[in-house]
Design a protein around this nucleic acid. Structure first.
Lengths: 375, 375
DNA sequence: AAGCTGAATGTTAGCGTTCACACTGGCTGA
DNA sequence: TCAGCCAGTGTGAACGCTAACATTCAGCTT
């Protein structure tokens, strides 16, 4: 009864509006809408995809029918026939860090504005196989393009093995690399940080870098190194962490024993927090004894002790540009180039004038409670 | 030339193995595999979906053909006919916070293990309309079920308006609520925190709660309140933040002026950081003057100044159980109940014995004056 | 007035799967 | 011996959509 399969073959009167409602129990299809509106399913399709090719009057009827039935197009069917899913894949590594999480948010937001959905795959291990596997997985889901928020050198190298010409893009990727990328200008950000320190009068600046193989880490390090070089300052050996507060802490313990240290540029805020902690424990006071600059402007950075001077990256904008570029690739407009996003220095209280020259080594403090300021 | 469209119509000899390879330029289809293996497309389908219903020999041939052509099934076609996409939708609010980001990671990881993909939609505003819209969006993408990592009361209420019986589940949702949910036992976590403080000798504990409308906030508050009540302690009015460090800071400024305050239970680590900062600025020393306990165990908490005593939630496990429950719903095994995840107290250095009885108001350095005002 | 044009709409044939059923043919049991 | 069965396989028809082509018919041109 519910199904009316025995519709007569001589159906001239079929095109009466409202005849033949949707068989209840199933989601309404384009044909159901067409029947209700008294048009062909193709007209419904046109109303959805190229509304201008349909009369105002017809369109109104169809729109009304769509509303009445609460019709939603079936993406699977559309994908099957067009070969496009209107979905972007995102490969994320370590998405609990502030930076990647924000970038993901920016990407999602921008994709939505362009009517694209987002499928996400996290990486378990940051090796090439894992990346290849993630990409395969997304390909199987028929994504139209892929964003990689795992800007490691190895990752990008792995991308080159992607067999089919699936548009792919890396955030914070190497500018001019084999895989197109959009990035915040890490190099410029690093320069901002180091120049700030130099301007305050520090004679040189130490650097706690991110892990090797990460483009961001490399660019920040390069910015640091070249700024120092340009200023004729001496260049201390680089210390290398893994972005985590823990690694910052461990490196901080080392640094607190370093003679003559007055300023550190740390490659992200999380590590800077670890450094701060290590210095506090060692009785090194920031910024009195040592100035610290971070990177990212994690919302927490403002509440560190002391509030952290850092370089702000606009991750949302980064996500937005990434999607713009990827969609350009998908729609065939290759080779579009977007300028990198400018970072911004946020000066807070973790930086100050260098300690007066000739002071004692850092690890020697006046006896007594090391934390209490002499008041 | 590349395309071989003119394949003859009289193709009786077509079923010869290896005759008629896939027309290059297109992704191989099931039929291409079938032709290569000398079987029907249906046999290929069976090899993929119910391998046991096929002879070893046949299966071997088919598998070989699949390998040779590097065949991957077309999910869109499968989804179209089965009505299932093997994709889970995730609605996330504020996914740059540590908790939600970790949960997302746990969900993704668990979904992958069950061969499900993840589509994500972020919420712009935390209102009901936005949630409904997000769910609509995911429904359009034909997800098989939805996880909501935005455990607000309003959100869950919105879920009840979901028209079709789409399995839906909320992390950290109300146990026994209208929408099923899995959660870390927030109530127990709060008890852990407050009992710890009480055991140290604090006569009462203040509470900085999360925003109203959040289940987590409510449960933590309830745990705090009941523990205090059970201990016969007095209950101070609740302060309410929005999870952000900034709100913690603002509330901390207020609290630092509070007479008789010796212990605070803060509903998450980010706000606790803000509190710490406010106290530091006000000259209130933690834990000497005031003890603080947070919630979540953000990896950064260990490096706060001082390192934060907090309640650890296993977000990964939470994500895992959420997916388990959701898949049970999808596969028709409704009403499955999973026990909540136990939280764990991590004692660090932000808690200690209460200030020696007596003592002036908090913003004054201890000078040995009696604390209990002889009222 | 006949023919042409082109905008608006309709018809048909897939896209690559799975589902429901039909067909084999070797084995069972009477 | 032969109906009956069952495991293994094949056939054809959906699923809901869009692409490509076909049709209609008002408004022109000639």
């Amino acid at each position: 009864m519910a199904q009316t399969e025995e519709r007569s073959n001589t159906d001239e009167s079929l095109r009466e509006p409202s005849v033949e409602a949707k068989p209840s129990g199933r989601r309404p299809s384009m044909t159901d809408v067409a029947n209700l509106a008294g048009v062909s399913h193709m007209t419904v399709s046109r109303v959805l995809n190229e509304p201008d090719s349909v009369t105002n009057q017809t369109r109104a009827k169809v729109v009304a029918a769509i509303r009445e039935l609460d019709y939603h197009p079936n993406y699977a069917a559309r994908t099957l026939v067009t070969g496009r899913s209107k979905t972007l894949g995102v490969v994320a590594l370590d998405s609990t860090l502030y930076g990647p999480a924000s970038t993901l948010y920016g990407v999602e937001s921008a994709a939505r504005d362009s009517e694209y959905g987002i499928s996400i795959v996290s990486l378990r291990a940051p090796n090439r196989q894992s990346i290849t596997e993630a990409i395969e997985r997304l390909r199987a889901q028929e994504v139209d393009g892929i964003v990689v928020i795992a800007p490691r050198v190895a990752a990008v190298r792995a991308l080159q093995y992607v067999p089919k010409p699936l548009p792919i893009i890396a955030t914070q990727g190497a500018p001019g690399g084999a895989v197109p990328g959009v990035s915040v200008d890490q190099y410029a950000g690093a320069r901002l940080a180091v120049e700030h320190l130099l301007k305050l009068g520090h004679r040189t600046v130490y650097h706690v870098a991110g892990p090797v193989e990460w483009f961001e880490a490399e660019e920040r390090e390069r910015g640091w190194r070249e700024t120092l070089r340009d200023a004729g300052a001496s260049i201390a050996p680089v210390l290398r962490g893994d972005w985590s507060p823990r690694s910052g802490y461990e490196l901080g313990c080392q640094l607190s024993e370093e003679e003559g240290l007055t300023a550190v540029f740390v490659a992200n805020d999380e590590m800077a927090l670890g450094l701060l902690r290590a210095f506090t424990e060692a009785g090194v006071e920031v910024p009195r004894d040592v100035s610290i600059v971070g990177f990212d402007d994690d919302p927490a950075a403002e509440y560190f002790s002391p509030p952290l001077t850092t370089v702000r990256q606009d991750f949302i904008e980064l996500g937005r540009r990434t999607v713009t570029l990827l969609l350009a690739g998908i729609e065939g407009r290759r080779n579009e180039v977007l300028p990198s996003v400018r970072p911004e220095l946020i000066v807070r209280q973790s930086t100050g004038l260098p300690k007066r020259r000739g002071g004692a080594g850092l690890r020697f403090r006046p006896t007594g409670s090391p934390r209490r300021s002499p008041r």
